[in-house]
Design a protein around this nucleic acid. Sequence first.
DNA 1: GCGACAG
DNA 2: ATCTTGTCGC
Length: 226
Amino acid sequence: MEVRDLHEWPSGAAAAEAVQDRLRPLLELDVPGPAEPRAVAGLDVSYAGDGRGDRLAAAVVVLDGTTLDVVEESVVVGTAAFPYVPGLFAFRELPALLDALRGLRTSPDLLVCDGFGVAHPRRFGLACHLGVLTGLPCVGVGKTAFVGTYAPPGPRRGDTSPLVDGGEVVGRVLRTQDGVKPVFVSVGHRTDLDTACRNVLALSPRYRLPETTRRADRLSRDALAS
DNA sequence: GCGACAG
DNA sequence: ATCTTGTCGC
């Protein structure tokens, strides 16, 4: 798919925060998300060595939204573009992820990425950044809490509880399987939270994490090994 | 001031 | 994120 080039790149934390503040107004959060996406893309990145190095592999796996069969894959080996700083995580993986997206023949109807969307200190996590740059609906699925407080959701698959930060609901804690640790869902771009959670649940028929994320994780890991 | 902090 | 042994459960 066509992905526009990254123009300016922040040289430090202050500049990176400024980029987030400048792009945030471009978010489209008051629109219904894709209820039945035909193609859903999962994105993930793996690192070589102990994680302190900068060699990485970014993968995108597109699944049929109904059957969850793999439709297309794209993976690139690259370099971490920024040090890991909580709140600026996107700058680390964004260039490589955009490269992987460029390797796709078709444009997905929904992007599912690791990390958060608006459940972020400045309301502009990786899912927001990726959404704005691609123009595609995007949802963030985090494995651990970052910002906000919440009550544990019920014990059954599908149970949820609101993730609240600064007095506003920034996401939802979603139990994707009976009795397993919940995941943290937040909207990134062009989707509402209800639809985002429905999509994530539909993508997680068997395991805690969405099939999109699991497939992309495996693909990126394999790419580093070879 | 200090610690915690998506991946 | 990644490095790791054993262990519990289906």
